[in-house]
C-alpha cells in the first residue's frame, strides 16, 4: 500500500486545500508531519477569509500581529492576572482600545503564535478576541469591539462612550461590517470627495455630540440648496461652498431632515448641535442598498426608536 505522504508537497496540498477547518484539525492528529503541515498559514488564510472576511479588515490583522508579537516576546499577560491583553491608541482622555484578547496564555502556551492565520481563526471562532469592527445600531454605525459567539452564531459588541458598555447582544452577521476608514474613531476622516459632491450622492458623515466622544457614522444624501430650483440643467449646487446634507429617514417637513455644511475638511458644528467630521462618499451599490433596507426596516419598526442627530434639531445657519 502506497502512502499519500510520498507525494510531492504541492500535490498533497491539493487534498489539504479541500478540507474544512474541522477536517484540518483532525488531520493534525494523524502524524507529526501533518501536525505541522496542517497549521500552515497557506491552508488557513482561505478559511479565515471565507468565514470572517465579511467582518474583519486590515486593522484586525494588524491587531493580531501585535498580540502575536507580544506573545513571542513574552510580554503578554502582564496587563492583569488572567492574561488578558488590550492595545490602545490615542492620547488621554481620547484613549481608544483597539482590540482585546481574553486569556492570552493560550496563545503563548501552545505556540499558536507561530501559526498566525490558524490562531486568528480560532481566537475569533471561540470569541476570545474582541476585534475592531463597525456595527449598525438603528441608523448609525458605531466603531466597536466585537466578538463572536459560536453557540448562537451571532456577535456581541462593546462601544466606547465615556466608559465601555455592552450595547449589542445577538447581533446578526449583517449588523457587523469591516471599518470603512483606517483612522480611529476620535479622528476626523479626511475626505477626498468634497469637491465632487453633488445632489443625489449617497454619503456617510461623521458626527459626535461632544469633542470627548468618538465619532459615529450617519447615512445621508446630498440635497439641493434652498436657492436652487432643482432643475438638473440649471443646478449649480456642486459649485457652492455650502453643501446640503439630507437625512432621508426624517419626513420631508421635519427640521431634522437637512443640515448645511461648509465644503471643507475639518470638524464643524457646535456644542448645541454636535460636531460633524469627515464625509465618505458611497460608491458601492451594495452599501447604498444596505442603508436603504435598514432605513425601511427601522422607520417601519418604530419611528421613535432611534435618536436623531442632535445637530439636525438645531440647524447651523
Amino acid at each position: 500500500m502506497s502512502s499519500l505522504l510520498d507525494l510531492p508537497e504541492v500535490t498533497l496540498d491539493l487534498i489539504l486545500n479541500q478540507l474544512s477547518p474541522k477536517e484540518l484539525c483532525r488531520m493534525l492528529e494523524v502524524c507529526v508531519f501533518l501536525r505541522d503541515k496542517c497549521k500552515s498559514d497557506d491552508l488557513w488564510e482561505k478559511h479565515l477569509k471565507n468565514k470572517w472576511g465579511r467582518v474583519i479588515g486590515e486593522a484586525v490583522y494588524k491587531e493580531w500581529h501585535l498580540h502575536v508579537t507580544k506573545a513571542k516576546e513574552g510580554n503578554h499577560g502582564t496587563n492583569n492576572q488572567n492574561g488578558s491583553f488590550g492595545s490602545f491608541v490615542g492620547v488621554w482622555p481620547n484613549l481608544y482600545l483597539c482590540s482585546y484578547l481574553q486569556d492570552s496564555s493560550l496563545v503563548i502556551n501552545n505556540q499558536w503564535s507561530n501559526h498566525f492565520m490558524m490562531s486568528l481563526f480560532f481566537s475569533l471562532e471561540r470569541g476570545r478576541f474582541w476585534f475592531p469592527a463597525q456595527v449598525y445600531k438603528g441608523l448609525v454605525v458605531h466603531d466597536a469591539l466585537v466578538r463572536y459567539d459560536y453557540e448562537s452564531n451571532t456577535f456581541q459588541a462593546r462601544y466606547q462612550h465615556g466608559g465601555w458598555r455592552l450595547f449589542g447582544n445577538n447581533m446578526e452577521w449583517d449588523m457587523v461590517r469591516v471599518p470603512s476608514v483606517d483612522s480611529h474613531p476620535y479622528v476626523v476622516h479626511v475626505s477626498d470627495c468634497l469637491d465632487k459632491l453633488k445632489p443625489g450622492n449617497h454619503i456617510e458623515i461623521q458626527w459626535r455630540g461632544n469633542t470627548q466622544s468618538p465619532y459615529d457614522w450617519w447615512y445621508a444624501v446630498i440635497g439641493h440648496l434652498e436657492s436652487c430650483n432643482k432643475n438638473e440643467n440649471y443646478c449649480r449646487c456642486y459649485c457652492s461652498d455650502t453643501i446640503m446634507v439630507e437625512f432621508k429617514q426624517y419626513p420631508e417637513r421635519s427640521n431634522m431632515r437637512r443640515i448645511k455644511l461648509s465644503r471643507k475638511n475639518g470638524e464643524q458644528g457646535d456644542r448645541a448641535g454636535g460636531f460633524y467630521g469627515g464625509i465618505r462618499k458611497l460608491y458601492s451599490s451594495d452599501e447604498i442598498e444596505a442603508w436603504k433596507k435598514l432605513i425601511l426596516l427601522v422607520t417601519n419598526l418604530d419611528r421613535g426608536f432611534f435618536m436623531p442627530p442632535v445637530a439636525a434639531q438645531f440647524p447651523i445657519h
Partner: peptide
C-alpha cells in the same frame, strides 16, 4: 470527511509517530 483519525491514518498509509 467525518472519519476517525485512525481511519485517515489507514487511508493515507501513515503510522502514528507521536
Amino acid at each position: 470527511a467525518n472519519k476517525s483519525v485512525e481511519y485517515v491514518r489507514r487511508y493515507f498509509g501513515i503510522e502514528n509517530d507521536f
